[in-house]
């Protein structure tokens, strides 16, 4: 019993190494390619707990690749650089280990898994992560309670839970389901990959609301987006412009507004 409590404490509390220097994610000079196509060319980024970083930039700049590097997509090959996440070498970890360490990606195109019940999927994910962290499995009644609580918070219809993962969901439902999953898995770092794409303004507001509810002093976000619009609702601490595989400008939220006016044309000059 004592043993268990001790473990829980360690996980609930902060990892001492990042408590000290207060940096959660340190991306150092990352070069990455898909096939022969070099996409990231020396990208640097530091994220502290609780911060929201928006990554903007023109099509093909490497925004989604950045997310995929962090999540560990196999076809993206990192050729140079390092990523430190809470004192661990993130690039050495398997995809599922990264997830269990607290990296979550809200996908731009969430895939459908026919016949697999949404709830079942989510419980399997949660328990896989808990197992990795040395916690006991969550039984179904406790899980159900948790789900009920979060579904209210996310303003989601509960019939989506009983349906197969993303199958027959509308675009908005899929995105909302991603945020709902995030609320259950409670990651330390959430990457939102163009979560606003394909959403009308009402759906956008609901998704942003969900994200805002999950913001806290310990959880960080990397919000990848084309448009300033999303950042009206999820207000970032930093805005970075990614172009040609590098971060070329960093500012606060006013930079996003500036980009909205000027576009990305100035990058070519």
């Amino acid at each position: 019993m004592n043993f268990k409590r001790c473990k829980l404490k360690r996980l609930d509390g902060q990892n001492p190494s990042y408590e000290k220097n207060k940096i959660m994610l340190k991306i150092n000079n990352i070069h990455a390619q898909v096939g022969d196509n070099k996409i990231l060319k020396g990208l640097n980024l530091q994220v502290k707990p609780g911060e929201v970083h928006a990554i903007m930039g023109p099509n093909g700049a490497g925004k989604s690749t950045l997310g995929n590097v962090l999540a560990g997509m196999e076809k993206v090959q990192v050729t140079e650089g390092s990523v430190d996440f809470l004192g661990k070498d993130l690039l050495e970890l398997e995809i599922e280990q990264r997830a269990s360490e607290g990296v979550f990606m809200a996908f731009q195109y969430p895939v459908e898994i026919p016949g697999v019940n949404n709830m079942y999927f989510l419980r399997a994910a949660l328990n896989a992560q808990r197992k990795y962290r040395g916690e006991s499995e969550m039984n179904s009644s406790v899980f159900l309670k948790l789900v009920r609580e979060k579904i209210k918070m996310m303003n989601m219809r509960d019939d989506l839970l009983r349906r197969p993962v993303n199958e027959g969901f509308s675009g908005g439902e899929k995105k909302r389901n991603e945020i709902f999953q995030m609320s259950i898995l409670e990651p330390k770092l959430a990457i939102l990959d163009e979560t606003d794409s394909g959403l009308d303004i009402d759906a956008l507001k609901i998704v942003a609301d969900g994200v805002n509810q999950l913001r806290n002093a310990d959880r960080s976000f990397i919000v990848i987006t084309h448009y300033q619009r999303l950042l009206d609702y999820i207000v970032p601490d930093f805005v970075h412009v990614l172009a040609d595989g590098k971060i070329v400008r960093t500012g606060d939220k006013s930079l996003a507004l500036e980009l909205e006016e000027t576009g990305y044309g100035w990058l070519d000059k």
Binding site: A71, G72, M73, E74, K75, E94, I95, E96, R98, A99, S100, F104, M105, F107, Y109, P110, V111, I113, P114, G115, V116, Y120, F121, L122, A124, A125, L126, A128, Q129, Y132, P164, Q181, L185
Partner: peptide, 24 residues
């Protein structure tokens, strides 16, 4: 690959993901 990546990104191992997809 996308299905497997999605499952793994949620913390589920490739083997468990495959068995889940087959079961579905």
């Amino acid at each position: 690959e996308d299905q497997l990546f999605y499952c793994k990104q949620r913390g589920i191992s490739e083997e468990d993901a495959t068995s889940m997809i087959v079961d579905g």
